[in-house]
Design a protein around this nucleic acid. Structure first.
Lengths: 198, 198
DNA sequence: TATAATAACTAATACCATTAGTTTTTGCAA
DNA sequence: TTGCAAAAACTAATGGTATTAGTTATTATA
């Protein structure tokens, strides 16, 4: 009376996400996962290619959700409004799913096709959100990197307790985004002046 | 002919840093470290409180070095120049010591007294570097958080290969810093206009 | 010179991932 | 309906990890 307990990939991922978010990504082991699912750990190999396979699936799963909330955040918006909502959605996701967010950045293989596809789609989304700033091709990509750096940096430090000071985190974040946007406008202004002078 | 091989804390830390930078922080195990030092792993317990003790020491060691290079970068400078050099030093350190940099952010106990002391000193240093922007008390601390977010985010993503696009990383970084600084100036201008209007 | 502290060691335990081989259930084809 | 193959669980075994207990040799000091 043992086989066919009803294990499948979605159930495994959900359990893994719960452990990751509640106890940290390092606590997601085949042993802890098997215990939560009331199964022996070798059984998991029928659904997932070991621990590294599980981590890959987790990374993809997280990237999909992150892309989804970011997409929802920007639809129907443009300019500063779009970027602000995008940023808020990013940070909110990292706060709601600290372990899963962590997983998106520790894919065992960053060259994984699925991971690259999702990364590409995310870049495209952010490029569109930045259209209002009239950055020309390469500049837009640099800006995407910058925005992502700032969003990830803030989220990562917030999670690791890297901000020791007793200061409102939401205010810090809003000011950071405001500063970046003001900088973007200023860069746009300078570029205009530059092209007019030529 | 076994005791007194000549093991001490500095030698242990150096070996740990070498492994971390060359193979990644996860590869720093008591086993790998013992092998590199030509010793049995239980011997390490005479110098370090297990793996978590080693990680704490590594974190402190990394923070000390990071603070040092940042201090060297800002002496005798002010304003944009100081911030730019500070940023370059931060990223250069993360590039030169990826594993050690990683260790600074994964201290087993962020409440550790030594860690907090170094974090505080670092904040003070950056606050001084930002003096030129005339941010009033709280605003200065928010700006420190912002700058740190952006520096850490860029470094972290760069290390994890999170930037898929074939685009010059140094250019991205320079533009990010320029945008942030332009934003800082703009915020200062707005604050001035605000206070004049009252 | 004797003794106590120190720093190495060996041995043993517990937990983890992984593989091999086994058993039971399910689904499908005859 | 029956039989068989694939799938999904299992047990057992291996090797790697941290850690603790207890031992031995060296060093420093009284």
């Amino acid at each position: 009376m043992s086989p066919r307990i009803g294990l499948d990939l979605p159930a495994i991922l959900q359990a893994a996400v719960e452990i990751a978010d509640a106890r940290g990504l390092e606590e997601v082991t085949l042993a802890s996962l098997a215990q939560k699912l009331d199964v022996r750990s070798p059984s998991l190999y029928n659904h997932v290619n070991g621990l590294s396979g599980l981590r890959s699936k987790l990374a993809v799963h997280g990237l999909e959700q992150l892309l989804h909330v970011m997409t929802q955040a920007v639809v129907g918006r443009s300019g500063d409004d779009a970027v602000r909502e995008l940023g808020k959605a990013y940070v909110a996701f990292a706060r709601a799913h600290p372990g899963l967010y962590d997983a998106t950045l520790r894919a065992p293989d960053p060259e994984d096709a699925e991971v690259r596809r999702l990364a590409g789609e995310t870049v495209d989304l952010v490029v569109r959100a930045l259209q209002a700033y009239e950055l020309k091709d390469e500049a837009a990509l640099h800006a995407v990197r910058g925005l992502r750096s700032l969003l990830h940096g803030f989220s990562s430090l917030e999670q690791r307790g890297g901000f020791g000071m007793p200061l409102d985190l939401d205010v810090s974040f809003r000011l950071l985004l405001d500063t970046f946007l003001a900088g973007l406008h200023e860069m746009k202004r300078r570029a205009k002046a530059e092209s007019k002078r030529d």
